[in-house]
Amino acid sequence: MKILVCINNVPDTTTKIKFVNNTAFDSNGVQWIINPWDELALTRAIEIKEAQPSEIENITVINVGLAEAEATIRKALAIGADNGIRINYDAKDSFAVAYQLAEYIKKENYDIILCGIESSDYNGANVGGMLSEILEFPSVSSISHLDIKEGKLILKREIDGGQETLSTQLPFVGIVQKGITKEPKIPSMRGIMTARTKQLLVIEAASCESLTDFIEFELPKPKAACKKIDPENVRELVQLLHNEAKVI
């Protein structure tokens, strides 16, 4: 089977968020990482390949982005992807990303396409579903368990208050969340060395339009200072929650 993992390049999760004129994210001094869920998806794909080399022919990572995303793609190669692709495009919304990915996938034959549940920057949770509909592939979202046995997929998905086991036809788009693997795989020294020799193909984008526009950003209003209560007087806390905050 051939697996494609869609990876987004996002600011490190501890980044202090700032904007330029409230119209664009201020990327000054920001550290970039593989979107956390995409990193988990990639880790899981590699785990399966390592455990059952005969099942997985190849793992490709793909990103829609500009040249600055290449460090992140290289990191994915260092973790263990076989080759990387960058579609050279500055997408304005998730639809545009999904469209670019679909244009590429249509010409190839991947069995499993993995996306993360959302990007930690714009919190879309869009691309995987959109991609599957453009391709008219089945999709399974909120996947928390993925395995392959004798050429068949074993899938579990989280639902509110429980879990479902599913089967799906291939090719399919799998949208993964936490639980799919425990910890993201960290690149080894050897991985980092071999990543330099792996192929990173850059392809030109198709023309496309976005359906939405980000017009303005805003930081939340600063919160009032925390009211401290004496640990010897917990009753006061409960009174405040009842009479002042009116939440109990």
Binding site: N126, G129, S132, D160, I175, T212
Partner: peptide
Amino acid sequence: NTGKAIAPRLSVKLKAGL
């Protein structure tokens, strides 16, 4: 989970911004 699973597909099907 359900909204995230369906809304993006519907967006493409109806060419509707999400």
